[in-house]
Design a protein around this nucleic acid. Structure first.
Length: 747
DNA sequence: GGACCTTTGAAGCTA
DNA sequence: TAGCTTCAAAGGTCC
């Protein structure tokens, strides 16, 4: 376990992580430290959990005063170095991974606070990263109280000049008045009483951030105290405090002021709810949520969390290690503050537990409609789910083969199926190819409903709620993953001649393609085709054509495919009548030979698609933990665009696709395409455009009818901006758009 | 006002 | 010990 980088070479305190140490390094030393510490972090990450456990178990063991952190502080007393509190982590890869907001908040630091700069007037350097919430707290829904409600000359930190005074100030109520600040932990806790004795240990600077934490927006954000936290009798913790943890948590200690039983009983009723310490992911979420919200204009936390979940997985180990470390510190601090607290306390108190126990009775792990079908297929939801009521299918599954308790659920369910799901039945049944066979079988076994409508059910997909319909989902990652739609006889080779852009930091397609069934994890990209027959939209041409599932599917797939240019692009191959589908796109040699586009079938126009196994179901999206699964985000963010897809003649699929694709490419070529992974260049776009144009010319000669497909851009790879007026405006133009992040959608 | 949704991780409980 | 369950944050939505 590395704990070096302390200038004084103090004994290693596990609390002293390398990232933390880096903060105390001078600018000139950071590079070297970064290199070494990164390597150390990798090692640290591997043992992070064990370390955490061991440390937490032994946290009550008295520790020497020679904490390396203190030593570090000693070395920086001249500058009142609390910079580490602001940005203990570097941004080597540009990923904003600064100090989690929680910690920063607890530290009571302004966002712009830097150890060597004016905390309030000097913006942080770019590498420090500015938490997104700083951009526009109001619009992001994050309340942000005054960082330091001091008057100009009241800012406490500058007054500190010595180590101890500095440290002491962190714990001196006079400095952070309880009435003025919200501390993450109650000031009245016994810990204050023991401060003099074991302060160096208990309030090691590594922990100080949380201990002395004063007001901060995140603390507001996570006003941790539930129940009495807002009660006036909670004293300083109520209106003025923003504690995550209650001040009067320990009733034993606070009971001294409440002598009579009535007060005690009342106090028990008002006993504050001590929340669990945030884990690494929660810390990450708190930090990144605002950013995602700002990027995506999504406000629904469920959707945001899905994005964050994916990003979390996409996060480097080093980055994650930081959050693990912070989470460990949170736990440590929480444990120190509330030694008697146990998660059991919270687990046994809430109604939530009761409710969940009820819903989990019967061992039903079925996903509810929302999770099964996603937001874009609400037409497949049961009625209660549409109304956010209890899922009757869920309840039905709970009762296995038996009827629901009142029977209404079944009836409604059946009615629902007959009403809304019949249309999907054939297609799902025929072409319903989604997910692995195993998963499909599993679903079939679980619920007969799956036959009717949930061949695409994300239930087989472990319930990523916002996934595209898995029934029509296929993965680009799998070279043999093709979705043959019998209804239209149009083959969609996942990899045929399409260009698949693989992130350099992601496993290659070949690697991923080895897995052709079952888990979706590791899928780099996917194509989602959602034969949503209910969608009706006016075409750009204004003509109204009866909706055709395949056409809709075509368009949506196209949109999906192009919307994932940054992750993968696989235009459809149209079966022109011959037994073998004709490749729609001819990859350019420059692309085929480009290692970036490494892909088994790229450039191989002779791929025998017909001989390819008919992967029944694309596992993409099956695993909500699949960080590379774009479907969840896609569905969350682009379904509205898809709903604008107008019907298209099946026979015109090729032309339509080409038309739409060309429009997109036009835009890409014109504006340049900056894919998520920065792998697409204008040259590529132009080339691809040329390829499309050539095919279009060919198609036009053979096709008589052309229906147009409107296209518009989506300005984010993960998030649609349907609510964005600009995006909406652009959606009305029959041109494709590419955002800066390189995602294009077609509607 | 509270449940629900959604994510991952931690912790407790149970078999 | 493995598996399951609950909770932590967040905010829109629904009842």
């Amino acid at each position: 376990m590395p704990h070096t980088h302390t200038r004084h070479g103090s004994s290693g305190d596990d609390l002293c992580s390398t990232d933390e140490v880096k903060i105390f390094k001078d600018e000139g030393d950071r590079e070297d430290d970064k290199i070494s510490s990164e390597n150390l972090l990798v090692e640290e990450k591997s043992s992070l959990i064990d370390l955490t456990e061991s440390e937490e178990k032994g946290q009550k063991i008295a520790r020497p005063d020679h904490s390396p952190v203190f030593n570090k502080i000693d070395t920086h007393t001249h500058s009142f170095n609390m910079g580490y509190l602001v940005s203990p982590y570097s941004y080597a890869n540009g990923t904003p991974s600064g100090l989690p907001v929680t910690m920063a908040n607890k530290m009571g630091l302004p966002p712009f606070f830097c150890h060597n700069a004016d905390p309030l007037t000097t913006p942080p350097p770019a590498h420090c990263g500015i938490p997104p919430y700083q951009l526009d707290p109001k619009t992001m829904g994050l309340t942000r109280p005054a960082l330091y409600p001091f008057a100009g000359g009241q800012y406490p930190y500058p007054m500190l000049s010595s180590d101890m005074s500095q440290v002491a100030s962190w714990h001196t109520p006079s400095v952070y008045s309880a009435s003025s600040f919200r501390t993450p932990y109650p000031s009245s806790l016994p810990i204050n009483t023991t401060l003099s004795s074991d302060f160096p240990f208990r309030f090691s600077p590594s922990l100080l951030p949380s201990v002395h934490a004063t007001s901060h927006h995140v603390l507001n954000a996570h006003s941790a105290i539930v129940g009495v936290s807002s009660k006036p009798d909670c004293g300083a913790q109520d209106t003025t405090t923003n504690n995550r943890y209650p001040r009067n948590l320990d009733t034993k200690n606070s009971s001294s002021t409440q002598s009579n039983d009535s007060k005690e009983s009342l106090n028990d009723k008002k006993k504050p709810h001590i929340k669990k310490p945030l884990n690494a992911f929660m810390l990450y979420m708190k930090e990144m949520r605002a950013k995602v919200v700002a990027e995506c204009t999504l406000k629904e936390s469920a959707a945001i969390n899905q994005i964050l979940g994916r990003r979390w997985h996409a996060l480097g180990r080093e980055e994650q290690a930081k959050y693990y470390e912070l989470a460990r510190r949170e736990r440590q601090l929480h444990m120190q503050m509330y030694p008697d607290w146990s998660s059991r306390t919270n687990a046994s108190r809430g109604k939530k537990r009761k409710r969940k126990q009820e819903t989990n009775d019967g061992g039903n792990n079925m996903k509810k409609c929302r999770a099964r079908f996603g937001l874009d297929q609400q037409n497949q939801w049961c009625k209660p789910c549409r109304r956010k009521k209890k899922c009757i299918r869920y309840m039905e599954a709970m009762n296995e083969n038996g009827p629901t308790e009142d029977g209404s659920g079944i009836d409604e369910h059946e009615s629902q199926l007959s009403d809304d799901d019949d249309d999907d039945y054939d297609e799902d049944k025929l072409g319903g190819s989604c997910g692995s066979a195993d998963e499909t079988n599993k679903i079939v076994d679980d619920d007969t409903e799956s036959l009717n409508q949930s061949m695409s059910s994300p239930g087989c997909l472990s319930g990523l709620s916002s996934l595209q319909s898995p029934s029509t989902t296929m993965s680009l990652a799998s070279p043999i993953n093709m979705n043959t739609n019998p209804a239209t006889n149009v083959l969609y080779p996942a990899t045929s001649n399409a260009l698949l852009i693989v992130s350099a930091d992601q496993p290659t397609i070949q690697q991923r393609s080895t897995s052709t069934s079952g888990s979706s994890s590791g899928s780099t990209s996917s194509i989602s085709t959602t034969p949503n027959t209910s969608s009706t939209v006016s075409p750009v041409t204004g003509t109204t054509v009866p909706p055709t599932n395949s056409a809709h599917e075509r368009a949506m797939m196209l949109g999906n495919r192009f919307s994932h240019l940054g992750m993968g692009l696989s235009p459809p191959v149209v079966n022109t009548g011959s037994s073998k589908p004709e490749p729609f796109f001819q990859p350019h040699s420059t692309v085929c030979n480009n290692a970036i586009f490494s892909m088994p079938s790229i450039g191989n126009s002779s791929v025998n698609h017909s001989s390819m196994p008919n992967i029944s179901r694309n596992p993409i999206g099956a695993n909500p933990r699949d960080i590379n699964n774009p479907l969840s985000i896609n569905q969350l963010t682009k379904r509205r665009e898809y709903q604008n897809v107008e019907s298209i003649e099946v026979s015109d699929t090729q032309t339509i696709v080409a038309h739409a694709a060309t429009s997109i490419i036009h835009h890409v070529a014109a504006h340049g395409y900056r894919a998520n992974h920065s792998l697409l260049s204008n040259n590529f776009s132009q080339h691809f455009h040329q390829q499309l144009t050539d095919h279009m010319e060919t198609a036009k000669r053979s096709e008589s009818t052309i229906l147009s497909v409107s296209t518009h851009a989506v300005s984010n790879s993960e998030c649609h901006k349907a609510s964005d007026p600009q995006s909406n405006a652009s959606s009305k133009t029959p041109s494709a758009g590419a955002s800066e992040t390189g995602v294009i959608s077609v509607s």
